[in-house]
């Protein structure tokens, strides 16, 4: 049972984490928040942005601030599943030979899957089990990942030549898709200053412990949410489906498939974590709004007309949000 002390400890730990990452990363507060929320919700994040925007730095800073083991995998077309999962190798101990599992880079707490769309689907799918089940099966042995475990994948939206776009099934396993935007003028100036003066970019020192993260996860799950808010989230999800009565006309016109039930779960958990991050004792509509786009933007599939007319999924989500009232 959650006590006042637990609540206070979780709140202060998360505040420290945000501050630590914020000291390293200039701008991108939403992406940072989304990443921390994913950490609290046992989720994974797909970071999309052009190279050089600080995606890798963000992941490194997060791992460093939490004091967790960090692993980076650069995905390339020739990357094999065994390269990331690990493999059994023959070892000899006291004259006794046997197979021993040599863990791949997936066995860490914070995984950076850099340019995930450059690997083949076979390698990409090797991530599926680790991302969703938090286990890796090699041969006949299933290995359990150590919590907290989070996969942060990046992809470049402009260099699509020779890439393997992630299938919908795999996309759905990412709790969030965070769009890493280009920094503003002031942010850019600040980034240049930090990297060209003194000792350069400094990664944060661990400000919270692994236990703090696990406690915060527990507290986040206990944050209360009203039944009407759950109904509201359900209506929001249904509104993404073109054949639903809740769907606005623009969705019926341009959407082929809507979000899955996993999206509803993600919305509720993320809203709870957001409320905890903001020091609230319950889930508010504002909490849902904060994570609405990043939770659903990769879960809607446009139809041919939508693709042809270049309809923005973000604008669709804005319309859904506006047309779905909280009190029905």
């Amino acid at each position: 049972m959650i006590t006042e002390a637990h609540l206070e400890r979780a709140s202060s730990a998360l505040a420290s984490l945000q501050a630590a990452v914020g000291k390293t990363i200039v701008g991108l507060p939403d992406v940072t928040r989304t990443t921390i929320i994913a950490l609290l919700c046992r989720g994974n994040v797909l970071l999309e942005g052009v190279p050089g925007l600080g995606k890798t730095l963000l992941v490194k800073a997060l791992a460093q601030a939490v004091g967790l083991q960090f692993s980076r995998i650069q995905f390339t077309p020739d990357l094999m599943p065994a390269d990331i999962v690990g493999t059994d190798i023959i070892t000899e101990t006291n004259g006794h030979r046997g197979f021993e599992f040599s863990a791949g880079p997936l066995f860490a707490n914070v995984i950076l899957a850099d340019e995930i769309n450059r690997a083949t689907p076979k390698t990409q799918s090797a991530l599926l089990e680790a991302m969703e089940e938090r286990t890796v099966t090699v041969g006949t042995t299933t290995h359990v990942m150590q919590e907290p475990y989070i996969v942060l994948a990046t992809q470049n939206p402009i260099e699509m030549e020779g890439t393997y776009p992630l299938p919908e099934a795999q996309l759905d396993r990412f709790m969030f898709k965070a769009l890493v935007r280009f920094p503003t003028e002031s942010e850019l100036t600040e980034i240049a200053l930090r990297n060209t003066e003194g000792e350069g970019i400094q990664l944060p020192t661990p400000s919270i412990s692994r236990d703090d993260i696990l406690l915060s996860r527990e507290v986040a799950r206990q944050i209360p949410i009203a039944d009407e808010m759950r109904s509201y989230i359900s209506r929001l999800i249904l509104a993404t489906h073109p054949h639903s009565k809740h769907a606005p006309s623009i969705v019926r016109e341009y959407v082929e498939y809507g979000a899955s039930p996993r999206a509803a779960i993600a919305l509720i958990l993320a809203a709870k974590a957001n409320a905890l991050l903001e020091g609230e004792a319950h889930v508010r509509p504002t909490d849902i709004q904060r994570i609405f786009h990043s939770t659903l933007i990769h879960r809607l599939i446009l139809n041919f007309r939508g693709e042809a007319e270049g309809v923005s999924i973000s604008s669709l989500l804005d319309e859904i949000w506006k047309k779905t009232p909280l009190s029905s």
């Binding site: 209360p224 009203a226 009407e228 808010m229 889930v283 508010r284």
Partner: peptide
């Protein structure tokens, strides 16, 4: 911000 409904629940 859903305070009353949450409290009631």
């Amino acid at each position: 911000e859903a305070t009353l409904s949450t409290l009631n629940d």
